[in-house]
């Protein structure tokens, strides 16, 4: 059981897993990528644009890790800078304006830790996304496809539906970070992984996600077709929700309530 959680972490980090762009290319048609945050630069760690899902236009945003060494370095290993989060928000606001549903694919060990990221307001950028996403008046679905590293992942996951791949993980801190802080021993990452309850099953039982996506035929046509079908169906449901924003508020409002006791 202890090892099982850490096995998931390893699987979630596996270089051979499909990355954000693989999902975009295989689920949607005619993806047009849009660049830049209109403030500072274009962050290659986050990819976004418009595509067609079934018959309707949608805005798609993905954290991209890359496959080859060169790609991975170009994508900064999927660790976004503030510009990435600001680009994502810009595209989400655009989607809202034109009534397009938003679909986010999340795969990051966390928002980038660096001097430039701090100087340009990493915390503020994430905070702004959390705040603004909470009232977007179009359907938002976020799918964790690999690593869901803390605030850097949550910044694209204030959604009406959050789904996780079977072997994706979602955590407040990396198991290594947790182990080194709590037990001054990053070698205890396996214990930390089990304690943090970061697997898809854990997240579902905590009410943090709605659905676990099977990894049967991962990366194959059938796999993507299955996700496409689920997305089309769910967007239809959400489009008919007359209190979309209110329900999204309540979704997050309820999280953690049962963990609070009264004297």
């Amino acid at each position: 059981m202890k090892d099982a959680a850490y096995e998931r972490v390893k699987l979630a980090r596996d270089n051979h897993r499909p990355t954000g762009l693989d999902y975009i290319k295989n689920i949607f048609q005619g993806f047009m990528e849009f660049h830049g945050d209109r403030c500072y630069s274009d962050d290659p760690a986050i990819v976004g644009g418009i595509a067609t899902l079934g018959k309707n236009p949608v805005t798609v945003i993905a954290i991209e890790k890359g496959h080859t060494a060169k790609e991975r370095s170009y994508r900064n290993f999927g660790a976004p800078h503030p510009e990435g989060y600001r680009k994502a928000l810009r595209l989400m606001k655009q989607a809202e304006k034109f009534g397009r549903p938003i679909i986010c694919f999340i795969d990051t060990s966390g928002a980038y830790c660096g001097v430039g990221a701090e100087e340009r307001g990493q915390g503020q950028a994430i905070a702004e996304n959390l705040m603004e996403m909470s009232t977007l008046c179009v359907p938002v679905i976020s799918i964790l496809i690999g690593e869901g590293g803390s605030g850097g992942a949550l910044a694209l996951a204030v959604a009406d539906r959050v789904w996780m791949l079977q072997n994706a993980v979602y955590s407040v801190i990396s198991p290594e970070g947790c182990a080194s802080i709590l037990w001054k021993d990053s070698g205890k990452a396996e214990t930390a992984a089990a304690s943090l309850k970061l697997t898809a099953e854990d997240a579902k039982s905590l009410g943090v996600i709605e659905r676990i996506l099977s990894e049967k035929e991962l990366g194959k046509k059938e796999f993507y077709d299955r996700i496409r079908t689920l997305l089309v169906k769910e967007i239809k449901t959400l489009t008919n929700d007359f209190d979309l924003v209110g329900n999204r508020y309540n979704r997050f409002r309820s999280l953690g309530v049962s963990a609070v006791v009264k004297e």
Binding site: S134, S171, L206, F252
Partner: peptide, 10 residues
């Protein structure tokens, strides 16, 4: 764990 992360969104 995740419940504390969710407090950021909440």
């Amino acid at each position: 764990g995740l419940l504390s992360l969710m407090q950021m969104a909440k």
